[in-house]
Write a protein that binds this DNA or RNA. Structure first.
Length: 338
DNA sequence: GGCAATGATTTCGG
DNA sequence: CCGAAATCATTGCC
């Protein structure tokens, strides 16, 4: 009696017939590996990967069940058939001497047959998993827009950190939590936002002002407090001559002031961290009031390059030519200076 | 159905 | 690995 290697009985559910021989069949090995990796043939799925969609999980479980059921069925059938054949042989052995070798050979044939069937099962299971993957995991296929609330949170962060819209890992995590999305989704969102904002600033002006105004009050308070605390009025504000190249004394000066304030004296830890964002917000408020209410600044105040002035994340090289000729909606007042 | 918005992926450079 | 830019694929609105 050729006993089963027993090495393949770890889970007690393994296939008896399938693996007669260790050596070959890269194909089978490939399938096995994949099933294992995909958590179909393994015990319970231990390693947690980024893939945790509940929908996906459910379907995978379904596949898993089918797979195991079928596998067991085959195994059982194989055993039954084997015993059946054995019985036949035994019966025949009365009339004809049958060598044990022959019996073994028959058993081998049977097992091979069944193992090929199992391979088919594995193959189709693999296919099913692949399809499932592409259906559920390729999020491109089934993407949902974020909730209004999530978008709001993200936008709020973006516009209040406009001079440096690169949330740290921590910040990303927090945003993800607040928005009920994953960290990589947050990263995606910021990546998209940055590039699209930069590409067409005009289109986002309204939005920017909106979100700036939202936090304007608190920011103003905070900054006021900071300024009050920090008596340094930065007396001179030298305003180096080079800064004259910018057309926007308003935001530019503001920015400068705050920067010096930030880096100077006073150990106020909270000030340093927050000022930056508040500057961003305030700048928008300033722009907004200039553009909408008072005739102060006039129309030239809010034009695409106020962003350049705020000096930012978007590279020193100005995109110069204003986007593409497909700019439509009329509300664009691009001044022709510069 | 066309079209813009938008989330995700791919490509490329550091 | 992160980010910019280009591109893809879906969603939602007209």
């Amino acid at each position: 009696m050729p006993d089963i290697p027993a090495s393949s009985r770890l889970t007690g559910l393994s296939i008896r017939g399938a693996q007669e021989e260790d050596p070959p069949d890269p194909q089978l090995m490939r399938l096995d590996n994949m099933l294992l990796a995909e958590g179909v043939s393994g015990p319970e799925k231990g390693g947690g990967s980024a893939i945790e969609h509940s929908d996906y999980r459910a379907k995978l479980t379904q596949i898993r069940q089918i797979y195991h059921t079928e596998l067991e069925k085959y195994e059982q059938a194989c055993n039954e058939f084997t015993t059946h054949v054995m019985n036949l042989l035994r019966e025949q052995s009365r009339t004809r001497p049958i060598s044990p070798k022959e019996i073994e050979r028959m058993v081998g044939i049977i097992h091979r047959k069944f193992s090929s069937i199992q391979m088919q099962l594995k193959q189709s299971t693999c296919e099913a998993v692949m399809i499932l993957r592409s259906r559920f995991l390729d999020a491109r296929r089934k993407r949902r827009n974020f909730s209004k609330q999530a978008t709001e949170i993200l936008n709020e962060y973006f516009y209040s950190h406009l001079s440096n819209p690169y949330p740290s890992e921590e910040a990303k995590e927090e945003l993800a939590k607040k928005c009920s999305i994953t960290v990589s989704q947050v990263s995606n969102w910021f990546g998209n936002k940055r590039i699209r904002y930069k590409k067409n600033i005009g289109k986002f002006q309204e939005e920017a002002n909106l979100y700036a105004a939202k936090t304007a009050v608190t920011a103003a308070h905070a900054v006021a407090a900071a300024v009050q605390n920090n008596q340094t009025n930065s007396p001179t504000t030298p305003n180096s001559g080079s800064s004259g190249s910018f057309n926007l004394p308003n935001s530019g000066d503001m920015f400068m002031n705050m920067q010096s304030l930030n880096g100077d004296s006073y150990q106020g830890s909270q000030v340093g961290a927050n000022v930056q964002s508040q500057v961003d917000t305030l700048r928008h408020v300033i722009n907004q009031t200039g553009g909408y209410n008072d005739g102060l600044g006039g129309n030239s105040l809010y034009s695409p390059h106020n962003l350049n002035a705020n000096g930012g994340w978007q590279d020193a090289t100005t995109p110069s030519s204003v986007t593409s000729p497909t700019e439509g909606p009329g509300s664009v007042h691009s001044d022709t200076s510069n």
